[in-house]
């Protein structure tokens, strides 16, 4: 059988991430703290954010202003974002104090940090597309910062259409891709060992 690009990609993927590493049934014994829960809580909160935002997208941006069900779904979206940001920040601080970038895990840290910053931008554009007083005031204030840095000439916070596209398409896509990349990196490299730890049997 001749080699193919497809086969090469499959062999590379399976070599880097065999199924037992992708979905393992065991973890190192040192993975025993509540701080580890905040990573998976971040992912689960993101799922609730995406699903509730998806329902709002299905019905359109004006729906929640005229429907009780819509208002409730919007509220679920708001509170899931609050939970998402809270658990993500705890996760981030936890990983900082664990120096979780050690052992060739720098890219895992960087993808997580960029995902956090993209999340701030996504939440910000969410406030801009609410079509209420918050949107008006926040856009009126934010334009000065964005214009002062030159960004406002292209990223117009008063353009509802542009902000909606960023909020429901571009930024969620970025967060989704970064999250998948981040999680795959965690699985490829495994959970970072404790600071100062030596491998069992290693006399150092």
């Amino acid at each position: 059988m001749t080699s193919s690009w497809t086969g090469a990609v499959r062999r590379y993927a399976l070599r880097r991430l065999p199924s037992e590493k992708l979905i393992p049934e065991t973890q190192p014994v040192y993975m025993a703290s509540w701080i580890y829960v905040f990573g998976v809580l971040t992912v689960s909160a993101l799922v609730v954010v995406l699903v509730s935002g998806g329902v709002l997208a299905l019905m359109g941006p004006g729906w929640w202003h005229v429907s009780g069900v819509g208002r409730y779904v919007n509220s679920v979206h708001l509170w899931s974002v609050q939970l998402f940001m809270a658990v993500m920040v705890i996760h981030l601080w936890g990983k900082f104090f664990m120096a979780a970038w050690r052992g060739r895990r720098v890219l895992t840290w960087m993808t997580g940090a960029v995902a956090f910053l993209v999340s701030l931008a996504t939440a910000f554009t969410g406030y801009l597309v609410q079509q209420n007083f918050d949107s008006q005031w926040i856009s009126g204030q934010a334009k000065d910062a964005l214009n002062a840095t030159g960004i406002g000439a292209w990223f117009n916070v008063f353009d509802f259409g542009q902000m909606l596209m960023w909020h429901v398409l571009l930024l969620p896509l970025a967060i989704g891709l970064l999250s998948v990349w981040h999680i795959l990196l965690v699985r490829v490299r495994g959970i970072v060992p404790p600071i100062g730890a030596t491998a069992p049997g290693d006399g150092r």
Binding site: I191, A197, T198
Partner: peptide, 17 residues
Amino acid sequence: SAQVPESDAFPTRRYDL
């Protein structure tokens, strides 16, 4: 990074992700 052992060098326990 050379000072950080590989995670799979450590004993494991069951963990249901």
